[in-house]
Nucleic acid binder design. Sequence first.
DNA 1: CTTACTATGTGAAACATTTAACGACTTCTC
DNA 2: GAGAAGTCGTTAAATGTTTCACATAGTAAG
Lengths: 217, 217
Amino acid sequence: MDTEPTKIPQATAKRLPLYYRFINNLHSQGKLRVSSKELSEAVKVDSATIRRDFSYFGALGKKGYGYNVEYLLSFFRKTLDQDETTEVALIGVGNLGTAFLNYNFTKNNNTRIQVAFDADKRRVGTEVGGVKVEHIDDFENKIENIKVAILTVPSNAAQGMAERLIEAGVTAILNFTPARITVPPHVRVHHIDLAVELQALVYFLKHYPLEDGEEEE
Amino acid sequence: MDTEPTKIPQATAKRLPLYYRFINNLHSQGKLRVSSKELSEAVKVDSATIRRDFSYFGALGKKGYGYNVEYLLSFFRKTLDQDETTEVALIGVGNLGTAFLNYNFTKNNNTRIQVAFDADKRRVGTEVGGVKVEHIDDFENKIENIKVAILTVPSNAAQGMAERLIEAGVTAILNFTPARITVPPHVRVHHIDLAVELQALVYFLKHYPLEDGEEEE
DNA sequence: CTTACTATGTGAAACATTTAACGACTTCTC
DNA sequence: GAGAAGTCGTTAAATGTTTCACATAGTAAG
């Protein structure tokens, strides 16, 4: 009973949540069918890429018709495990951390921030976005079943915190600090580096002028 | 006098700011030389990839020696236009926007948030992270020379704001809203979608177990 | 039923990126 | 100064991703 088909390319996997969200929108708008072309315009991914992506999961659509929204939705729900919620811990309740806490992922998502931690005693005990803030030194006791952490601490604390998280059983970290943390091979880290993103955008702006007609991810 | 060599691959261009920051660190630590191997360990990019990346700009290193930090730094400073500051506008001073304003990009960066805008009158007139907050309806007058905007507004406002920004002359947008905005071909948009990033991480966690020895970007 | 239309799923080509491997040159050590 | 060790720059191979283009099968309508 493995839901896994053959391995999906990573590039495809990264687009799945995006597809899911949009299909979800369509569904709540009461739309019954959708073509790869419509989807393409909405999510800004080439329609052939969408068809290819979907095809890794088998034939989800009907020729001459498109995709049935209801079916697509229930398919992705299963595939993305939307039914079981993944509990997440957030480390560092600064501005960025607060932004996450207020984001309310659970709405369209299978992820929920269960608990947040901060080193600043003034923040401990408060509640942000419905999530309790605990002191960072207590966390070893409070994240026993948590495998995913969002790291929004100052960058000099990043490596140390990562090690403590891993020690406590975390195996996936979304790292928003500029520090590139070093982790054992069984731990997955995704870096999102705001300064780098902004600089890269500026670099593209200056060195890769868009000609009319050239489009963009 | 074109600083442009032949076109650099996009994947390389996205790594340049990362390299720059790290080389900058080395320099302020007083380090004189660095090898692609050391750099690789620090930024978590394969050393062959680093050598390849650097080689697009010509021969920056010396065989048997490595790279001279001073030289590398001054080279990247030029290449990434670190000398001229790019002015940026920030739209939407919520938690995420505030996080950006407090980030202080100028420190290691050639980008500076010059002005921020918000629709909430209570925020207008305040200063966040040293940046004045203006009312959003005034912005057409105040961003005449600004080409880059960070969009951290609620997602239902994203498309409309994007259009106003473009109308006012913006040609690059860093979009943090979940909305995939539609823009004319001469405008560059980079999407950073926090919920998608988190979901993708969870998907990888569940479906792509890391074997020992497998490493990760 | 037949014809016109539509849109999928995919083979094959094109394109992009990463990685391995190694020759050439430098530095280091004795 | 000679040999060992180190490290770049690059050629070539491998891998990954996107896109084209079209046969095929379904829909829609008279």
